[in-house]
Each structure stands twice: as C-alpha cells, then as structure tokens.
C-alpha cells in the first residue's frame, strides 16, 4: 500500500522495468510516442452513426429475406402435397395448376384406405413391427449398455471397440448375406425377418452407455451398501434416470420402422407383412380404366397420411429427436 505514492511519482520519469525480464525494453521511446499521436483522428460522428444504422437495417432485411426464401423452398413441397391431395383429378391435370383447390375432394383420402393401397393393413403391420422391435431393442440395448458402463470384465474395451468399429461398415455390406441367412432360416414373408436382424444398434448402445456413465458412481456404491443387486439397480435406478435417452431411442426406432424401405421390400413384400413405405412406393395409383395415367391427387393423399404422423411426432418430441440426431448422422 505504501509504495503507491512512489510509483505515482516515478512513473513518468523512469519506466519501471519489471516486465518479464526476458529482455530489456527494445522499443525506443520515440516510437511509442509516435503510436500515441497517431490515434484515430476526429471523424464526423453523425455521418458514421447514420451509415451504421442504415447498414444494420439493410443487413437485417437481407437476412430475413434470405431465410424466408429458404423457408418457402423448404415448405413448398409440403404445401404442394397438401393442396394436391385435395384436388380432383381433373383439376390437378389442368394446364395452369391452381394454388388452392376449387373443390375439396376428400375421397382421395378414403381411397387410400380402401383401394389397392389398403393403408389400414399397412399401418397395422408397421405398428406390430415397430412396437415389437422397439421393445426388444430397448431391452437388449439397456442390458448391453449396462454391461459396458458398469460391469468389469476381461476384454471389455476390445469388445466395445470392435462393436464401434462395425458402425463404420456400410449396411449394404450386410444386406446380401442377411438376405441369404433369412432365406435359409425360412423367415421370408414373416415379421421375424423384419424385426430380428435390426434389434441391435451399436449406436444406441453407445449412446445409452454414455448416459449410464454420467450417473454418479456413488449411487452405485450406495446401492451396493444397501444390498441392492445389479439387476435391481439397473431397472430401478439407471433406467429411470436415462429416460430421456430411452425416449429418444424409442422415437428414432419407431420412425425407423415407419420409414424403412429397402429391407422390408426385400424380405416381406407380401400383403400380410408389407410395411407402410413399401406399400406406398409399390402402389401404382392408376386412374381407373386408363393405362399409364397416374392419379396424383390420390397418391398425394396417401403421402400426406404417411407424412402426418411423423410431423406430429416431431412437434411433440422435438427435443428428443434433435438430441439423438445431433449426435449421429443417422436418419430414423
């Protein structure tokens, strides 16, 4: 405290050389004086302020214009799908497309359930596959994630690493053999073929394991002290605590069943087991009595019905979907 006054006095006369001590001050004094004199000169403040405001407003306008343009491009297919689905076939085929249906043709929607598409059956099939595979997949994922997160065993790291390594391999590589395997098991045209091969997702195991690892170790030790078995601890503590991740997995898995196309088309393309997307793509939507004329409004109605559940899930579970998505490049 006492030396303040001293510093005060000596300041301008002799520069205290307490720097880093790496080398003596090299800049000549004149140089530094120069710097101080060359400070930004006086300017017309008012003019600068005005220009600054104008630029700011223009930039904001440009940003909103750009974002609006993109938003319109993103939304346009949805809009077109909706209004097309409500048009009559005749109106749809007019030379100048209308941007709002003159007359709402709701029968396009009922046709989707009654016609060749038979959406009701497709929904049922998809629901069965979705629910069963989600449930089984959750159980398997939970058990595996627990083993990797909590239990100690020989070869754990090698095992986990090997599993992660399989994520690098494109799924197409598996499909050929799996098709042969499923045929050999006589599983073609069964729900089993749709469910079993995809029960294990290494990514979900990884995701859940990370979640489990975040649960503080003391909880596990406390459980041990209280005499709780691993099994009980897993289901009573870890699973409830990881609910958000489990919900994410459930949603993504259900969406996966809804959107899956390649595999179901390959192994279960019959009416009794067909899934929604396969049915949708496979249906011809031909206009009665005319060859090669596609009834686009009817097709769009079916597309709307397939799309709406997804959008609803997105609206209600936005947070969970985004959580899962931002950590992976996978879709569905």
């Amino acid at each position: 405290m006492e030396n303040i006054v001293e510093t005060e006095k000596t300041g301008s006369a002799s520069v205290p050389q307490t720097g880093t001590g790496e080398h003596m001050q090299t800049a000549p004094h004149a140089d530094e004086q120069e710097i101080s004199k060359k400070t930004m000169g006086e300017r017309n403040i008012r003019e600068i302020s005005k220009k600054q405001m104008v630029v700011k407003i223009l930039v904001q306008i440009a940003l909103y214009a750009f974002l609006t343009l993109i938003a319109v491009s993103v939304l346009f297919p949805f809009y077109w799908m909706l209004i097309s689905s409500l048009k009559t076939w005749r109106e749809y085929n007019e030379a100048v497309p209308t941007f709002w249906p003159r007359q709402f043709e709701w029968s396009n929607y009922t046709a989707a359930f009654t016609g060749e598409l038979n959406l009701g059956r497709l929904f049922l099939n998809t629901l069965i596959v979705g629910v069963v595979s989600t449930l089984l997949s959750l159980i398997i994922t939970i058990l595996s994630a627990f083993a990797f997160a909590r239990l100690e065993f020989k070869g754990k790291n090698i095992m986990f690493g090997a599993m992660l390594a399989t994520m690098m391999i494109p799924g197409e590589l598996f499909t050929i053999t799996n098709y042969v395997t499923v045929t050999a098991f006589n599983w073609t045209h069964t729900f089993t073929a749709l469910i079993v091969p995809f029960l294990v997702s290494v990514f979900y195991i990884y995701l859940l394991r990370q979640n489990f690892m975040q649960i503080p170790n003391e909880l596990y030790l406390a459980a041990k002290v209280d005499g709780t078995s691993d099994w009980k601890y897993l289901w009573r503590v870890m699973v409830p605590m990881s609910a958000p991740t489990l919900i994410s997995i459930t949603i993504l898995k259900m969406m996966g069943a809804w959107n899956s196309y390649i595999w179901p088309r390959l192994v279960a393309n019959d009416a009794a087991h067909k899934l929604v997307t396969v049915g949708l793509r496979g249906a011809t939507f031909l206009v009665d009595g005319m060859d090669n004329m596609i009834n686009y409004p009817a097709q769009m109605a079916a597309v709307v019905i397939v799309t709406i559940p997804l959008l609803l899930i997105f609206i209600f579970f936005r947070k969970y979907i985004m959580r899962g998505v931002s950590r992976s490049g996978i879709k569905g």
Partner: peptide, 17 residues
Amino acid sequence: RLQTREEIRRIQRNTGI
C-alpha cells in the same frame, strides 16, 4: 500478475492512451 500489472502501467505511460 505482479509483473504484468507493472507492464500495463509501463505501456500505458509510454503510449499515453
């Protein structure tokens, strides 16, 4: 911290900003 604050003091005095 001790060193650097003297440094700041020095730079400020020399530039007069």
